[in-house]
Design a binder for these strands. Sequence first.
DNA 1: AGGTTATTTTGATCTAAATCATGCCAGGTG
DNA 2: CACCTGGCATGATTTAGATCAAAATAACCT
Lengths: 237, 237
Amino acid sequence: MVNRRQPVSNCINSQFRNAAEWCALSDVDLKAVEAVAICREYDVGDVIFNENDPCRGVYFVTSGLVGIRKAGLEGDSTLLKIAYPNETLGYRPLLAGQCHRATAEILKPGLICFINSATVLPMIEHNPALGLNFLQRATRELGDAEERFHKTVTLTLRARFAHLLMLLKDRCGHSSDNGKFILELPVSRGDLAAMLGVRRESVSRVIHELEQEGVTHFTDRHVEVANADHLIDEFRA
Amino acid sequence: MVNRRQPVSNCINSQFRNAAEWCALSDVDLKAVEAVAICREYDVGDVIFNENDPCRGVYFVTSGLVGIRKAGLEGDSTLLKIAYPNETLGYRPLLAGQCHRATAEILKPGLICFINSATVLPMIEHNPALGLNFLQRATRELGDAEERFHKTVTLTLRARFAHLLMLLKDRCGHSSDNGKFILELPVSRGDLAAMLGVRRESVSRVIHELEQEGVTHFTDRHVEVANADHLIDEFRA
DNA sequence: AGGTTATTTTGATCTAAATCATGCCAGGTG
DNA sequence: CACCTGGCATGATTTAGATCAAAATAACCT
């Protein structure tokens, strides 16, 4: 449910102007985007778009955190991706000419700006640099998706969990000198499980194991890892 | 191993000109591609490029069949994709600015044309239509890859196998009037297993099951399915 | 506070698929 | 021909992770 619906003006600011894909926009186009963008504050649990919804444009994450989910037949869902600030959502179905194939749900409250396809598509079509930026983004994500599939069928849960921690480290962690790092998990255990394609209980057990062996130290969503190499060894040796 | 190395001229013909992505090329660019393309016959088992090889350009499949594989730590590999004639391979790492992240291996002998990145990249950068074609291709594949991940962690092997048969039907099958269809598998059982992320034996057992129940009739690589709905029910009900 | 609802952990089974082992058959090849 | 070799099937056993069932913990109200 959407709790707050205050439209916010001037959301297309320097943050947007400098974002990975949109930095290719001309001043004219930026103004055009600014004119049509619809920005809104969302709360945890709010849904931005649903699986199978027609795709009407893209969403720019100004702040907050968004989870991209796919629902399974029996309540079991997978978390495909966490979108961080400065990311653009929904470009995939827009450019593939498809409906949304996943649901976007707010994990951490924030400001999301909608830009309709009538505005975005012509820009991508006529601005090669912008198109290339999305092309790079799409091909990178495709590589990651293929990697993920390969890892899920090839590695054990334990190895995949170690790998996931390393990926999250790059986004939500700050590491000190010697292999040690500290990490604030952006999601619940249940969502960690949904990212790995397993059950909550299985994640609990893996964490328990790693704790026992002193590889990690979990306190709620706060994680300390004494030596990153111990985690890396799990999936590269 | 590459057995035959005869360069073949004039491989960039009307087939290439009409291929999904390349139809956007101008006559001038087509000539330029024609001038630099290097075409070669490959035999079963030949490798076009290897995982971690630097990406030097793209490969157009004129004829034959190519498997895109990723190797696991212990000999276990996954088959990410089968490339059919008229498909372009290697565009993903090229546009992502990465090395090849999978190996391309010939499944059925055919003619493959190489076009170096120095030729291709500028064309994509300056021809928005061409870029858009690849953008559509990449975003579609990304959608499929996400779908695949979701299905592998959500569905049973049996359901996934049924789904795979339906996908292969679209490429290698011809269906008659009432739900019935016939399918010539393009790959071995082992490769079916590699596509599903399971072991050969497990695929054998699923096939055995479906046979028993009269849902399918396998004879070597020839498959007959009396009613496609029986397969569809496996993963949609 | 205390009561109510999520989230997480933990334990006891259960099961799908892996693993190990063996045998079958068709296609080459000396 | 006998002898491989590679792809496939099948049986017996093991195991990683699911499922079922409680507890323990944390968060959330009034």
